[in-house]
Amino acid sequence: MMRRLQLNRHSMFAIYRFEMMRFRRTLWQSLVAPVITTVLYFVVFGAAIGPRMGEIDGVGYGAFIVPGLIMLSVFTESLNNAAFGIHMPKFTGTIYEILSAPISAFEVVLAYVGAAATKSVLIGLIILATANLFAPIHIQNPAAMVVYLMLVAVAFSLAGFIIGIWARGFEELQFIPMLIVMPLTFLGGVFYSIDILPGLWRTLSLFNPIVYLVSGYRWTFYGSGDVSIGISLAVLLAFLTISLGIVWWIFRTGYRLKS
């Protein structure tokens, strides 16, 4: 007989609510700071430099950079929120309560990643609304835009969860988001189309997975991207699958969680 999948919803909701309350407690740092940062990017790149850039793929430069800016925030916020979410209990010792609760590893991940993804989707949508004040944006595939945003948020939250468990201290916690993801994002076509790069740099850019993620999201807005939406989706799903696999391994082995 097939065993019914029974989720411990009270336990999951307790973790989810705890994480969302942490978000509320640190509203300035969690919500206002990324929005202000993105607005500054928009003002500098979109409003000041944008008029001199002309159109890219038939889209004004100000509107062109919006999907990339949202992705930039969602990448960093998902990584940071999920990483801090699980790292803090490890750091303060309150992880004992999670480990001793009648909750499965899957449910723990679902709760932490769900909360981190919710926060970054919220931030992404707020940035979109703010950007709309600076440059009118017409979204061709609104449903695809929201689904894609959620998938990216979940994938990066999973990666953040892994970083949070892997990190032994706050320095390691910041290492991957700041020194790997941030540079790759800046070089991943947030502010430009890789088609305008010279041959070698364009080829090198194709090794950067962020290019595919940003391009896919831009496709949901304007119906075109640097690479086809199929490849972008494949990269996104591959990223999700790999992250899920690593999380599954962590809980199976107790890596840096259990003695």
């Binding site: 009270h10 336990s11 307790a14 004992y96 609760a101």
Partner: peptide, 29 residues
Amino acid sequence: IGLVPQELHTDMFETVWDTVRFSRGLFGL
């Protein structure tokens, strides 16, 4: 099972009510 660990492991920024409510929910109630 309920466990009171040796060290005072709590989230220092939470209120007493919230942290106790969290524990009840975490244990599935």
